[in-house]
Amino acid sequence: MRIDYHMHFEKGSYDENWVEGFFTAARKRGLAEIGISEHSHTFPEFKPLYYQDLILDDSFIGSFQQQWLKTNKFKYTLDEYFAFMHKLQQHHDVKIGIEVCNFQDQAAVRDILKDYDFDYIIGSVHFLHGWAYDSSEIKAEWDRIPLERIYEWYAEEVEKLAAAGLYDVLGHPFNIRLFRYLPDFDVTPYLMRVVKALKKANMAVDVNTGTYYRYPIHEISPYPDFMKLAAQYDLPIITTSDAHKPEDCGNYNQMAVDYAREFGYTGTLRFSHRKRSFVSFD
């Protein structure tokens, strides 16, 4: 069974005609089921948390991130999202998910999520000490911060996400490689910290092709060194495209499946109302 649970409607709108393209692409690529995992920045309920956590001063980074928060953000409430998804479910087999950023106030996140019947919740590291590290517009910051510190920060953020006990999946693990800043030091301690945190929290790994076709690293996340450890610790996986446009739904799904098989994986998780089951790829 082929599934893709990581994609977003944010480049368009909650319009049935526009989102139909996701289902068309899913059928074309042989997907049995998809799930939408809207970014938390879609929803005004999370707005205060972004303004608490991000660098928003007059610096180069702060100025960019101020504008980022004002562009195509916070445009639908969670109630509107669920109403639209329930409408889609009348005609399509689609799950309701969300991708939540690594906010520092996890108690506030819990309070936001508690009243909604998600099928699954992805937690993803998108910010390191208030810096949106995956934004190409502020990529220059990578040259200022020692890479070993970035790995330390990343491991810390995953540990905090996992400890919150709110999430089913870690989104695109170790996508800090996305701009090809590659370490010349032993990263094994950082990989182990993340693997152990996920194991303790019973979280799955997002085998995500988005970094393959959307970023310079041109590799699936997580990269092989992490995948080896994930397999050793029996961490389950999902295979995803991280599609932001309809035509990218299920993009390189076969590559993700073949990649996962290299590490001994034979199937993926399927979610429904936060309950998980294992399904084989074929």
Rank of each mutant, 00 (worst) to 15 (best):
R193Y: 05
S241E: 05
A197I: 01
Q254E: 15
Y76D: 01
N102E: 09
V195P: 06
D134E: 10
H41N: 12
F9S: 00
Y76N: 00
D4R: 03
Y51R: 12
Y50L: 05
D248S: 11
A32V: 12
V187G: 04
F22Y: 11
G123Q: 11
F174I: 08
I145V: 14
H92I: 10
F46G: 12
G165T: 10
A231Y: 06
N253C: 10
I217D: 07
P189M: 02
D282E: 09
A164Q: 07
L235C: 04
V169M: 05
E38G: 00
R193M: 09
R29P: 00
R177C: 15
C249H: 13
E148L: 04
H126D: 08
Y215T: 12
Y120D: 06
K139Y: 07
E159H: 12
E148T: 06
P48Q: 11
R29S: 11
T239H: 03
C249R: 05
I150D: 02
Y120T: 10
Q232I: 00
F64N: 02
Y51S: 02
L31M: 06
E16V: 15
K47W: 01
A25L: 11
P246G: 14
N253V: 15
H91Q: 13
E148S: 00
T188P: 01
D79W: 01
E247Y: 15
Y213D: 08
T188M: 14
G62P: 01
I122L: 04
Y151N: 00
L31S: 13
V194Y: 09
Y51D: 00
V158S: 12
R261V: 01
E20A: 15
Y215V: 07
H172F: 00
R270S: 11
L198Q: 08
A140N: 12
G12D: 13
P173L: 05
M1N: 00
D134W: 10
Y50K: 07
V257A: 06
K73S: 08
Y14F: 15
D58P: 04
R261G: 15
Y5R: 01
D143N: 08
I238C: 03
A83Y: 07
I3H: 00
K199R: 12
K73C: 13
V205K: 01
L229I: 03
P222M: 03
V19Q: 04
W131F: 15
E38N: 02
V195L: 06
D258Q: 13
L147Q: 02
A164R: 02
S135E: 13
D4S: 07
P44I: 05
K245D: 14
S272A: 12
A204C: 04
T188W: 00
N208E: 05
K245A: 12
G165V: 08
V109T: 12
A231I: 04
L128F: 14
S37I: 04
I122M: 02
S277P: 01
I237K: 03
I98Q: 03
L182Q: 02
A243I: 08
F82W: 11
N253I: 14
G264N: 09
P216F: 06
L56W: 06
Y213H: 14
F103N: 01
P173C: 08
G123R: 03
